[in-house]
Design a binder for these strands. Structure first.
Lengths: 192, 192, 192, 192
DNA sequence: TATGAATGAGGCTTCATTCAT
DNA sequence: CATGAATGAAGCCTCATTCAT
């Protein structure tokens, strides 16, 4: 009957949940559906997760942590702040495409405390990462002087927009180049 | 029992729906709740709207149209493309704050065809508006040369991000100045 | 569809609940069953009762109040304290037979606060009633001197025993005469 | 992993079951809980007991037999019928306090045949015990003449009441003295 | 038009029981 | 003997929708 270890089962449920939640969002996803996708019974899900909310929060935590780590890793290898920012944007777009529906979407409307905490921690990390990039940029003279905190917040907002745009319009194909180009150069003509 | 006219009833339902959907999102809102808020019976709602989806789509249409019109109006009065863009951003932030939960949120996960159409039309209008601003900008030499379509799409994405940021973090206080500043000038230092 | 007024529906649900709970106890009774017995849908039950516990507590309250009132009424008509006590015993036995399973049984194991309150109030009333009977008895010289409070508590316990005995053994046919005989006269031979 | 013998395991399950069932009653007790309390796996329980009902019936049998034996033992040492009855009452109160929830409670509503048999046998024994006491009492002239069977049944009912009163109201502190006093002497004033 | 009681499908969750290891 | 993951039936409850009045 149980051909898997507990850990394997938990992971396969988590994977299934990522898939289903990604496609349908929180409220449209049934536990039964996740169970089926994971190849386990309904009751089986409740061995590993206290309830639907717990499953969602765990998944969110897992995903955001993974995303956070990878982004940090990628940024580390970049030579300059512009490249770093580009990398962050690219990373965001890539994940958005992959985990359509989860990264930002829903969970919000439930106001699950467990989710809010997870998200808050994540956004804080991201903000720090971007603040660092901006600081490095201004320190090296590549970026102009600006209020680092404000700029970072705005960038975060912009990133969210790219991500969310992908979510609501799957045909939208934002390129990281185009996005970073505007963020870096702005629209205004530079005085020569 | 002072009866309302049909139109009045429909409108009060719509208003109630805007309020409740804004606060709780689609799936967490019950028809009963909307009815109560509108001071009408449950059955009453179904006289004016085919079903919950219809109510939502109607509301969305109403709201987005209103938003679209006002934005266009506001932009018309602006002297330059930078001011116009600023106005659009300010408009987005203002509406986001007011109709928390509706403008972007949910409805998405349902993939209601009726909503998709409404949204598609709306985003098209917005894109055109922004494309026009950019065109005017480049034509007048204030904006640098760029792929108008691409730039507009990116701007739209950015706007969404600002809006969405407000939705998920009610403490976030994006100022239109900060936002437009980055979009217009970018982060990179201008060569002097 | 709805041939009944709200009040009628609520009452028929209550009646059905009394019947089913009486027969099967709390945990073995399903809401569906009560609904069916009441000739209403499952959802219909939830129009009138917040949940299963509420239904049970309401029913308990209704039944105990009814019992309390009738007992008081009956006692009022009795000429002496011995007759009064007899009447109380008879009343208890009669109700026990009719509402097998409810009066005392279950609900207890759930520890529903709502039920506890209802019961506490009921037992207090009954205790007072019996205390009064005993007081009258001793005052008139028919009952011997005793600690009224203690005696009343013991009598209450005894009553519970008769009731409960009926519940667990439907073949047991306690007669009010036999019961009151022992309570009044005791087992010991009277010294002559 | 120091393994227990089968007998030890079975006993520890039974003890655990007594504890948990006593506290929560039948339907509110889960097999998992009993297993945990016994320090054994869920499956382990099913090695020694066919199912939950079997566990309950076994426990009931064990408990009632133990109770029966001890009562008989205690009664044997008593000098007179009044003392004997007092001892029986004290015994009942003591056990009721200890095995709150089991002796009488639940199981009833399930109507488990296995439990009914166990109980029937128990009550028969108790009735005989009490009948004997009464017989001895009347034979010795200490108790007045009465229908032994009827009196015994009434006494049994009364005992149940004391027990049950303790179960539903843990603050109730019935003293065996008070209880036996009424049973022996009754409420009516003795003619002198 | 308006009401609101009624419906019933369907979601979440629990738990006695089984069985591969 | 023992384990504990897995099963799946069944219970409680919600809520969009209908319809007799």
């Amino acid at each position: 009957m149980n051909r898997r270890t507990g850990k394997e089962s938990k992971e396969s449920i988590l994977e299934a949940a990522i898939k289903v939640f990604s496609e349908k969002g929180y409220s449209q996803t049934t536990v039964r559906e996740v169970a089926k996708e994971a190849g386990i019974s309904v009751g089986g899900v409740y061995i590993y997760f206290k309830n639907k909310e717990d499953l969602y929060a765990t998944l969110l935590n897992y995903l955001l942590k993974d995303f956070s780590d990878r982004t940090k890793e990628t940024v580390k290898d970049m030579s300059g702040p512009a490249d770093a920012l580009y990398a962050v944007i690219a990373m965001n777009l890539k994940y958005a495409r992959r985990y359509k529906g989860i990264i930002i979407a829903e969970g919000r409307d439930r106001g699950f405390k467990s989710c809010l905490d997870v998200k808050k921690r994540f956004f804080k990390k991201q903000r720090r990462l971007i603040e660092d990039i901006i600081k490095t940029g201004t320190a090296s003279g590549k970026f102009k002087e600006c209020n680092v905190k404000t700029a970072a917040r705005v960038i975060i907002g912009i990133l969210r927009g790219f991500v969310f745009s992908l979510l609501i319009d799957s045909t939208a194909l934002y390129s990281a180049e185009d996005c970073s180009n505007i963020i870096l150069n702005g629209l205004l003509r530079r005085k020569e």
